[in-house]
Design a binder for these strands. Sequence first.
RNA 1: GCUGAAGUGGUGGAAUUGGUAGACACGUUGGACUUAAAAUCCAAUGUCCAUUAGGACGUACGGGUUCAAGUCCCGUCUUCAGUACCA
Length: 994
Amino acid sequence: MRYDFNHIEKKWQDHWAKNQTFKASNTSDKPKYYVLDMFPYPSGAGLHVGHPLGYIASDIYARYKRHKGFNVLHPQGYDSFGLPAEQYAIQTGQHPAITTETNIKTYRRQLDQIGFSFDWSREVRTSNPEYYKWTQWIFIQLFESWYNNDSNKAEDIKTLISKFTLEGNTTVNAACDDNIEAFTAEDWNSYSAEQQEEILLKYRLTYLAETEVNWCPELGTVLANDEIVNGVSERGSHPVVRKKMTQWSMRISAYAERLLQGLDTIDWTDALKETQRNWIGKSVGASVTFKVIPAVTSSEVEMSQKIDVFTTRPDTIFGVSFMTLAPEHELVSKITTEAQKEAVEAYIEKTAKRSERERMADVKTISGVFTGAYAEHPFTKQPIQIWIGDYVLASYGTGAVMAVPCGDQRDYDFAKHFSIDIPNIFEGVDISEEAYGSKDNVKIANSDFLNGMNYKKASKRAIYELENIKQGEGKTNYRLRDAVFSRQRYWGEPFPVYYVNGMPQMIDKAHLPIVLPEVEKYLPTEEGEPPLGRADVWAWCTESNSVVSNDKINNTTIHPLELNTMPGWAGSSWYFFRYMEDAMRDETFASKDALNYWENVDLYIGGSEHATGHLLYSRFWVKLLKDRGFVNVEEPFKKLINQGMILGTSAFVAKVYIQTSKTETDEQRAKTPIYCSANLIENTENENLKKLIFDKIKERFSDAVIEKHHASNLFLTYIHADVSLVNSSDELDLEAFKDWRTEFKNAEFITDSDGVFKVKREVEKMSKSKYNVVNPDQIVEDFGADSLRLYEMFLGPLEQYKPWNTAGISGVHNFLKKLWKLYHQGENGAFYADSSPLGKSDGAFKTLHKTIKKVAEDIENFSFNTSVSTFMIAVNELTAQKCTSKDILEPLLVLISPYAPHIAEELWEQLGHSTSISTAPFPEFDASHLVESSKNYPISFNGKMRFTLELPMDMSKDDIEAAVMANEKTMAQLEGRTPKKVIVVPGKIVNIVG
RNA sequence: GCUGAAGUGGUGGAAUUGGUAGACACGUUGGACUUAAAAUCCAAUGUCCAUUAGGACGUACGGGUUCAAGUCCCGUCUUCAGUACCA
């Protein structure tokens, strides 16, 4: 019987689906194990071979855990809100829900054919109202929470209101906006409801505020910090500008410390933890207040000006010789003197014109301007010049720095450039060339009460003295900013929010979900409102508690609804809890029982690109839900593994042309390209190549006016060719290439002398535009899902980036054929396995147990590539041993089943089992089968292995030495010399020195 | 600049605690089978020298520790990823 993988795989996929083989139960005596993949965004392009890599790995682990007796939850779903469907909708008018539905169908078909053991009964789609009902619900929870720094957790906003009523806000230690005025209980009670609402908004964990946001004009929406890469939008690489807008924000900064501490409790890679630590960016130091010295002509207002700065080096306070403000700093306009006004304004205008990107690219140029104003040094009371400079960022700290040129290179460069004084406050340190930035091995000098102290002591003392004069305090600063949560988009979760007199009101949870309204166009309105501004039925009636037509808005009972939608990360920040719930999805986001049973994700596999987005926001929301008593866990993902990206191997065709006349234009030249085998370009002399091309042009374009054969007129470019037109030996199918696109219809080729046309190969990210995408469908069709699964694992370590090369798949496919053959015999290859018992000392037992040990270790270490090799070795050995015993062939199948489940199920059935192999117990490793009686010792001389010698395992050290020394090969190696030393490591090696 | 990861045959990679470098595959070459092709099977395959026996070199580069280094230490270079006038 032939190994008919197409038939077998279809058969078992149908069987699993029909019998719900992988359905997880919320009630089980078995220990639980939750294996999760980062759910995909269903894009129109479908899956390419890179996508399933992580899914295959997690599937192997999930299947392994089932064999090990666990109740495994291994779900899958779709992150189905998102930009591409909306962009497509804008272009075609097609509703994103329809596009999404179509794409999901494709994904599902592609996923199913790879044979994943997903429990599809728990599928989630973030764009389904039954799901986003609970996303809206969580949003309301955030709105109804504030962060109490004393209890170090989020609490119900009601507890804050009662504090205000009884004590005002002076005793409250909350994570909140930093511009809140102090008020007493009487004040609070005298405020109007509206005033109270306004104040509460500054404390809520999600709040509406006018903030500087990253506005992307091309996309017509704001972006969060993690959606910007190198100063341009992550999606589409469009420019981003700073803009003041009123937006919903998430007070993630309240959780900065807990997000940081929590990293120590979870099993993630150091790289990923480090990325999150950097993103949170904790720095410990002090805030220092500098008083602005009023100018002679100044008014009362200017007299009270103060500049707060944050510094990590309070010990260097006596080294301050100037201050620098960010050009955008609000004080700039207030303190600038008349004389400097023109220069300052010109500078501000100049820097405002520079985009973020330019500013980032150019860090070398030193620029700045003196404001004319002075601040007073808190201790020496000396006047200090106040400058503005764009090396100070408005978005970090307070947007102002106390410049210590002797201790900070940027301050140093700035001072040098503008000839500002550089006082030295470090004992015995030379600062004539550069600043001394290190905190270590240095004592403070010229610093009054700090003299002679080291960094640690001096910092402590400086903070103490600053607190004494009420001009500073110890402070911890975090780089982590609150996350903007509004998007000016259609295809996202609507906010459960309506507005009364401009103040946001939450819709009662009982009336959720607020379903996305229909619009006729998915673009912003002519007035610049978000797409939901086009909805006709988008007002909230507080009497009927329903969404009603806009024209009914009366601002008494019927109010306008929020026009923004939530960002992509809203739905993905809690979906892992949703999978736990399989029955009561309408009543709760996940029931207590489900949450108690499954707790959190034991193993999470996905890409590292989510390090500062999804993985941070999820942790934030989980902590909020924990604080408010909805879940029991502090962290969502106990162990996390990043799978590496599978890269494409692009094929490039060399396009050459020779200028045939001096007056030839680019356009004319473009009409006469010749395609040239990459071999020729690399291996042919330039002149010869030119001649070849030249002859080809003459032959082809006889009417072309060929003037001269210049040395400088050879043009060469490489263009992408579709990888499907190229075989594994890098040869291009010329006819297929001509038919590929009309522009190549009449292409002319210069081939190698044997008529072969070679392409140049290069490894790049897989992308449609690079024509290097390899689709799993064809591979499954040609080689089967088991081959695909094995091959993706065999390619290399899971975490590593690696290029895809389809050629290698024949190796694992051959392995599966050999495996099949091991269970079949005779003329027509009928199934065969015998049940006569095997002697304990049979070599097959050794092979089996060696394999059990290695495979179990490999799976636990996520080293899937090496277990595929191990299987190959095992099958090669068992084939050589002509093993037909069930004692071996049965456990072997269980070992292989996580990797190649279809063939395993099929052979398992033929072995006479009526139940699925998926819950068969994992074979027990028995070390007694691996006990060896002898060892083939490597005998080395001065560390170089020369020959091997078979010696009994239980031989003593001395006997081994004697045996080795008596060997004639040893004699030959020594050529009569007496060895200085003989190292014998029993069971390992013998080394003779001399 | 900083942080993290990594550099091993023609290619993907293996070597888990310092102990036979290159497992397992791909590719290539030669052979068997076949009218032929496919499929399958067998053999060779790090480089160099040598008819053989065998030898020299060899894990980015330069040092070091050790009986023994891909692995440990010091320095240098390169690549990839993240991040950045972060005060």
